[in-house]
Amino acid sequence: MKPLAFIASGAVFGFLLSMARATDAAAIVGMFRLTDLHLFGVIGSAIATAALGIALLKRSGARTASGEAIALAPKPYHRAVVVGGVIFGLGWGLSATCPGTALAQLGEGKLYALPTIGGILLGTWIQQRLAPRAAVAPARSC
C-alpha cells in the first residue's frame, strides 16, 4: 500500500476511536474511577471482534486480498513488558490519553493534546537512547 492509503486507514481508525469516546479524557478518568465503564465495554468488544476476524483470516490461509502473506506472529514475551506496561499505565492515568487518542484529539480541535504528543515523542526518544544500555529490546511493532 502507498503512504496515502496508510494515511486514509489511520483516518478511519482515528474516526472510530473518536466515535468510541476513547478520545474523551472524561471517559478515561471515569474508567479508572470505575464511574464510567463505557471504555471497558469498548475494549472488551473490540478484542472479541478482532480475535474472531483474525481467526477467520487464519482459516483462509492468512493472505491479503492480493494474495500476499500476512505476518500474524504475536509479540514475544520479555520482562520489559511488565515494567514498560506499568510505566505506560501511569502515564495513561496522568494524562488520560494514549498514543492514538492523543493524535485523534488534535484533529478534534483539542489543543491540549499538543503537550501530550510532545511528551510521547520525548519519552519515545529517551527510551530509544537508553534502550541499548538498559538491555531492553527495542520492540518494533506498535
Binding site: G84, F88, G91, S95, P99, P115, G123
Partner: peptide, 19 residues
Amino acid sequence: LALGGLLVGYGSRTAGGCT
C-alpha cells in the same frame, strides 16, 4: 499532560506496544 505523555512514550516503547 506532558509528564503523562513522557511516561506513555517511554513505557509503550519499553513494553513494545500500546493500547
